[in-house]
């Protein structure tokens, strides 16, 4: 007892330092086996695409077709591919573990009793989800660039744009970075909405199912011509905008508007989460 008393003399404060909380959250996120497995699988995506492109050995239509002999397009194609389903699901998984999972394990209670204020908890959790999303995007981008250069190859490390111009390696990588940041913005929206669902349930699978269901519903809605007017409301309708990073000069309109839309979704998700966490029993 006395030993504890001596070592533990801290200043009289009512909240742990934010940096320590964030660091603990990040450590926790990356100690979670499923996070590491997911990141490992994401590293495979660009490799598989690269091998597929090399084996097929012909120009196909679409973004994948543009990869052939043009390695720096690979990370962008892989990110676009993963954004359709896998990246949102990975983000939703992180969000599911963040609140619903913690509640299911009974650890949310511990955090609230420490105490971590409920608003701060939402901030820490949102940060954790964003870190997972960023790590996933980074893995795809970096492995994509490497696999693009090594497996697919490109003339002098250049990137051929869809407009028929040629960019140097540095500018090509900058385009990849642009797409990565844009994808992260979209995932922030998914993560915030998933976090809101996560704050409403104790079952992590409900969060995954909601996000998957939402993606499918958005896909169906955007495929119905009569519901054209709905398109600008749907988060997913801007998810092909990464192609614009391959144009020269780069076209930022679609990425800009989809980012604004993503920020609105993120505000909705985070707002609901904050509101809900104020009254949630833990």
């Amino acid at each position: 007892m006395t030993a504890v008393a001596e070592t533990a003399v801290g200043p009289e404060r009512t909240a742990a330092p934010l940096g320590r909380l964030l660091a603990a959250e990040v450590r926790w996120v990356f100690r979670r086996p499923r996070t590491l497995i997911t990141l490992g699988l994401f590293a495979l995506i660009p490799v598989l695409v690269a091998v597929g492109v090399v084996v097929a050995d012909r120009n196909g239509p679409g973004l994948i077709g543009a990869v052939a002999g043009n390695g720096l397009v690979l990370p962008i194609a892989a990110l676009t591919l993963a954004l359709a389903l896998l990246l949102p699901l990975a983000t939703a998984m992180a969000a599911a573990d963040a609140l619903a999972g913690e509640a299911a394990h009974g650890t949310l209670r511990g955090l609230l009793l420490a105490p971590v204020s409920r608003v701060r908890l939402v901030g820490v959790k949102a940060f954790g989800v964003l870190v997972v999303a960023a790590a996933a995007v980074l893995v795809i981008a970096v492995v994509g660039v490497l696999a693009g250069m090594v497996v697919v190859g490109s003339a002098d490390g250049q990137m051929v744009t869809l407009s028929g111009t040629t960019l140097g390696f540095g500018e090509g990588v900058a385009r990849v970075g642009l797409v990565a940041v844009w994808v992260l913005g979209q995932l922030a929206a998914v993560g915030a909405v998933a976090l809101a669902v996560s704050s409403l349930t104790e079952h992590p699978l409900v969060v995954l199912a909601s996000v998957l269901g939402g993606l499918i519903a958005f896909g169906v809605l955007s495929a119905i011509p009569a519901l054209d007017w709905l398109q600008p409301w749907l988060l997913t309708s801007g998810w092909t905008a990464a192609t614009d990073a391959l144009r020269d000069p780069v076209a930022l309109d679609a990425m800009g508007s989809s980012t604004v839309r993503a920020l609105c979704y993120a505000a909705i998700g985070l707002g609901i989460t904050v509101w809900r966490m104020q009254r949630r029993d833990a």
Partner: peptide, 27 residues
């Protein structure tokens, strides 16, 4: 504080919906 934050949370969510509307509905 709880009520204040709950109000702020719902306010941010509503602002998000309004923002989405501004983006979605052409001027």
């Amino acid at each position: 504080r709880t009520k204040l934050w709950a109000r702020i949370g719902s306010g941010v969510a509503v602002a998000g919906v309004v923002g989405l509307g501004l983006v979605a509905i052409p001027a």
